[in-house]
Design a protein around this nucleic acid. Structure first.
Lengths: 318, 318
DNA sequence: CTGTTTAGGTCAGAATCTGGCCTCAATTTC
DNA sequence: GAAATTGAGGCCAGATTCTGACCTAAACAG
């Protein structure tokens, strides 16, 4: 019954590639009778994919949105666009879907034909990341690690710890966690025999070793909590308060809401509160608003802005 | 034969969700005999999806990357991640896959169940866009327009032209073009009876009118060329040249290559060339490099940086 | 070497598929 | 209002395919 199944998939692909099809067109494309097309449509409906139909001239079939996701039939370019899109979503670190994005990416990369993989890699270098301050994570690393977590397969990699010493690790990966603007791997270190979190931007050449392991239970309920707890040397965090010489509405229209809050002070000024681990990025973000402002907190930010101001003056001195 | 086809899809879904499965597991899940599983695997192989198998204990089935994209079977969260990822890819306007991303997005949104659509919309507000300078495009508009182009369906919308006058338009959409950092719709204006390009960020409430049309031939070979030609009042473009007080290697590691070129001058300085339509964004990007520098070209950029410097000094005066 | 796992041939009965034919209903166009 | 077009679906007959059971072979891990 390869014929019927593959024809159904083809039919689904056709219905996804354009929205309106008449029965006779479909019959020609799939080289079966119109009666069979009607039956195939019926089958798709049974499978839960709602195919709408209209009678009369200008009638035809159309695939509607249903209650379940149908299999997506993508052409090469679309697959690439999705892979690239997921990569950026994975490293965006701000919308709250990074972990799912990585999971989807793993699924896609598992079946991505090699010629497409090459094209994605070529484009990968060009992904739009939020301005590059601080270390970045290789999306390739993320998918390798996530696949190992999913398949309970041991992982080897080189790691540079906070104090700069390098070491080879062999771990049983448990999960990938995205916290703040960083990725962490929670894993059981096989040599040292205890749980650890690794920063993904500090590890290199992660490779699945091929060895399977039985999943262990984390001491904490959930991996994110474990990471949170284990980062006791909490990353420095700066909370900024500035007065903007613009109305709250003007500013709000230009500031994504996750970048802080804006409240009106009077008709021409407003207060902007925002925070970040990264002082440089914080400074840039505020400078980018393109309105006059005054910094109140923190002093480090004022200092950084003064330095930036001086640098810009020097840069344009000639 | 709904049973066989849906079982094949389910099998594909299982193989995509994890990498290693033994025959007996699959047989249990799908409630058929192991012999049937073997036959199903054979069928998948016939369909072109390479299923690897290993004998012996620790053996099993595994879906490899083949030469064609298999249908992607996504769970809800993954579908959302893809939708969000594609939206950012579509508005990234820099990697060169925006148009394909929109096409894939249209395909996905066509079948995206409504409860997922709502979740995507909720997340949509929080997408990471490159810093917000200049008008932004609503990704929803893009998909509506792209769907109309695909389905040769007339489109109505409100348009604010360059000089600020509003009008209602009814057009036969031809294609969506991404040029520079903007989106354009190339369409035949039905009232005025000629070809036009519309900036997508200037149009509102695009709605398919339900009327089909016969595709017309563009006077130009290709839509992108038409847009390029019709934007005679070419957007201002700034080419910047700066000297950085850092080695080319240091800088290159932090600058995506599409943001310009870096060439070494000597052991401690390098030359950076980059360009953009948007002076503000250009200035920010250079300031963001976090190294000392000198601006040579263009004078407008130097001017802008001086202004920024002054603004930062004022901001931290207290 | 032993146990486990996939590969695949064969068989027989059951189930399904396909195309053709027909009638009916909906809708557009003239 | 009538004609033409398009989908819905019942029915039939012949051909095809599917499934589970049983069996042997081959590969592999410990």
């Amino acid at each position: 019954m390869t014929a019927t199944s593959s024809r159904l998939l083809e039919l689904l692909a056709l219905l996804q590639s354009r929205s309106d099809w008449r029965g006779s067109e479909l019959a020609d494309r799939l080289e079966v009778s119109r009666r069979t097309i009607r039956r195939d449509v019926e089958r798709l409906r049974e499978l839960g994919y709602p195919v709408e139909s209209l009678t009369g001239p200008a009638g035809g079939y159309r695939l509607r949105a249903g209650t379940a996701m149908p299999p997506l039939l993508l052409d090469d370019d679309e697959a690439i666009a999705i892979a690239v899109g997921l990569r950026t979503a994975a490293r965006a670190s701000v919308t709250g879907i990074e972990e799912t994005a990585v999971r989807a990416l793993v699924k896609l990369e598992q079946v991505l034909p090699s010629h497409l993989r090459r094209r994605v890699a070529a484009l990968g270098a060009a992904t739009v990341a939020p301005p590059v301050t601080g270390p970045t994570v290789d999306p390739q690393h993320l998918t390798v690690i996530a696949a190992a977590c999913r398949d309970t397969e041991c992982l080897r990699f080189a790691y540079r710890s906070r104090d700069g010493t390098d070491s080879r690790r062999e771990v049983e990966p448990h999960s990938l966690v995205n916290l703040g603007r960083r990725w962490y791997l929670v894993a059981w270190d096989r040599r040292r025999e205890h749980w650890r979190t690794f920063r993904v931007d500090r590890l290199e050449r992660p490779t699945p070793s091929g060895v399977r392991f039985d999943p262990r239970r984390l001491p904490t309920r959930d991996a994110a909590a474990y990471v949170e707890r284990s980062i006791t040397g909490a990353p420095v965090r700066y909370e900024a308060t500035v007065t903007l010489h613009a109305t709250a509405d003007e500013v709000a229209a230009r500031v994504p809401h996750y970048w802080g809050t804006v409240e009106p002070i009077d008709d021409s000024t407003s207060r902007y509160r925002t925070g970040d681990d990264d002082l440089q990025w914080l400074a840039i973000r505020i400078a980018m608003l393109d309105v006059d402002f005054e910094v109140h907190e923190p002093p480090e930010l004022a200092e950084r802005l003064r330095a930036l101001s001086a640098r810009l003056r020097r840069a344009t001195a000639s």
